[in-house]
């Protein structure tokens, strides 16, 4: 196995992990603080991609479209919180699941109605279409580097927000003890709406960043939501640090599994068997990891201290 391929695959894994983190961070915030199971979080990811795609054509520039789409997504999150989430806070998780499943169906079908069944290809400006030679054989597409940069930037911003601002202090307090925060006379409704909007913006951003690579398509959110749930469970619900580490871990494992597992399997079985079983086993890996983590640490890797 050659080293530069390994490095490239690690970068690919990092990129996937950071995208997962963007989706998972919002999910873990909403889950940890609001105690709300939002299956429709993936639909927000999809909406981000579609808004950004349309705006890219309207404004003629992808990056501009991203900056305009982020506040739009926050607004969408705000509305969703008002209409669907808020009336359900007092209910149990089962009601959240059923209600947000209904929301997925509604949002998916609306997207089908508005944008049609085909996906949208998002054009990038020329300077993002090329490749960057890092060293030696290691050449990566520019846009993937941008995703890594944007992912790290968003993670840094979030870290600062949670650890060094008043809002962050409330969020941290909310994650460990909800009743205490409301007892402090904080406008808890406002805090919840803000958290929801923040989560929607982050998920939307992830969708915007992936759209130029794959495309904006119906159902794209349903593919990532389960992986994002795996991330927050492995990381420990409500833990930003846990979500970050688990996202990178799962991104790397998934990518490295897809790249090298069939070669490894070929040592043990026939080429043909290796080629068909490797994709399945590499897809299984993240679930094996989650089950293993939960079997030994039933609260995930980094459970918030007080619940």
């Amino acid at each position: 196995m050659d080293l530069s391929l390994l490095v490239i695959q690690m970068l690919n894994g990092l990129q996937l992990g950071l995208l997962l983190f963007l989706v998972a961070s919002g999910l873990t915030l909403v889950f940890g603080i609001l105690d709300f199971v939002n299956l429709a979080h993936g639909a927000l990811y999809m909406l981000g991609a579609f808004f950004c795609a349309t705006l890219t054509f309207a404004l003629g520039n992808f990056l501009l479209a991203v900056f305009v789409s982020i506040p739009i997504m926050a607004a969408v999150g705000w509305v969703l919180e008002r209409v669907l989430a808020r009336p359900l806070y007092a209910r149990d998780h089962l009601d959240h699941v059923l209600g947000t499943f209904g929301a997925i169906l509604v949002i998916d079908t609306l997207v089908h109605l508005i944008w049609g069944p085909e996906g949208i290809q998002v054009p990038l400006p020329d300077y993002l279409e090329g490749q960057v030679p890092l060293w030696g054989d290691v050449v990566v597409p520019t846009f993937r580097l941008l995703i890594i940069g944007a992912g790290l930037g968003a993670a840094g911003l979030l870290f600062w927000l949670v650890n060094y601002t008043r809002l962050g202090m409330l969020i941290r307090a909310g994650a460990s003890n909800r009743t205490m925060v409301s007892a402090l006379g904080i406008n808890i409704e406002m805090l919840f709406a803000l958290v929801f909007a923040l989560g929607a913006a982050l998920a939307g951003l992830a969708g915007m960043l992936i759209a130029p690579i794959t495309e904006a398509s119906i159902g794209m959110g349903n593919n990532i939501i389960i992986t994002a749930f795996v991330v927050i469970i492995v990381g420990g619900i409500g833990s930003m640090k846990g979500a970050f580490i688990a996202a990178l871990l799962i991104g790397l494992i998934d990518t490295l599994g897809r790249s090298f597992l069939d070669d490894i399997f070929k040592f043990a079985m026939s080429t043909e068997a290796a080629e068909t079983s490797a994709p399945a086993v590499s897809a299984m890996l993240i679930y094996i990891i989650m089950a293993a983590v939960l079997a030994f640490r039933p609260q995930g890797l980094f459970p918030p201290k007080v619940r």
């Binding site: 889950f31 998780h93 469970i233 994709p279 086993v281 897809a283 679930y287 939960l294 079997a295």
Partner: peptide
């Protein structure tokens, strides 16, 4: 709680991918 939900799903997904392979 939620951890139970997710771990039961994990085992089901493993069976799913096992059959796929």
């Amino acid at each position: 709680g939620v951890y139970f939900i997710m771990i039961t799903m994990a085992f089901a997904q493993m069976i799913y991918y096992l059959i796929v392979s």
